[in-house]
Amino acid sequence: MRYEAPDTIKAAVGLLSKAKGTSRILAGGTDLLVQMRSGMIEPDLVVDIKSIPGMREIVAEKGGYRIGAAVSGAELEEHGKVGKMWPGVVEATNLIGSTQIQGRATMVGNLCNASPAADSVPAMIAAGATARVVGPKRTRDVPVEDIAKAPGKTSLAKGEFVASIFLPKAPARTGSAYLRFIPRTEMDIAVVGAGIALTVNAKGVITAAKVSLGAVAARALVVDACAKAIIGSSLDDEALDRLAAAASAAAKPISDKRGTVDFRIKVAGVLARRAAVIAYDRARG
């Protein structure tokens, strides 16, 4: 195994493109080192991207924010402004692991680990985030929901990696939230996660919404039926019931050590409803 810490994207892409065998990106390392330790993967090359300029930065762009691939959850939180615009995304990212994990873990890592239970992913999807993918051929911006394909599998080609996440400018009167269910109060992987972003008009009627569910399918789901259930409403009880029913209907989970099918289906609805209430209150200020 080889460790490299290039200082340009080009050099990193070059290393990854030429590498034989398994290669992995190191940013926060909170998934990578666990997988190496368990023998799940044995990379021949590890490319540490933290020396590349911009990777640890958050910059304002077109009214939104571009977040470097190596920005940790703690750094994201301390930034303040991102959390003000997209509280759901920042809260979701801050739910990943302990204080110690927050010191290292990144949104991009959470995304590219391609776990269906990744906390930040439904929140990013709901916010309409895009991932900037750099690679040997071209740089492309990809909706976050198109990165993970299946557990542990991404749509990235050889030589490609995600260099940043872009969170667009939130429209006026937009609120976002992410809630997850875990058996303990901390330190668990989501049994179910629900991310939502919604926009209301001056009268409090929902004009736009995006809802994403985690841990109920092979990858985070975008549930249009959930959005439809509440658009045009003032999030009254009937709208919430429709939302919960749509979330439960969309959930196609499995039973495993973390939860059962029935539990995940039921709680997907409960969390979608609760997250919507928070997002709605935030949207109305």
């Binding site: 460790y3 810490a5 190191l26 390392g29 909170t30 080192l33 666990v34 330790r37 368990s38 590890v46 540490d48 933290k50 940790s72 703690a74 692991g97 302990s98 204080t99 110690q100 994990i101 010191g103 290292r104 330190m187």
Partner: peptide, 27 residues
């Protein structure tokens, strides 16, 4: 644990609390 789940290896890295089992020596 060696997997960042117990915190017994906690250290500060540039003032930031981390699990030293989840940091590469090389970095």
């Amino acid at each position: 644990c060696g997997t960042g789940d117990c915190g017994a290896c906690s250290v500060e890295l540039d003032g930031r609390l981390v699990c030293s089992c989840l940091v590469m020596g090389a970095e």
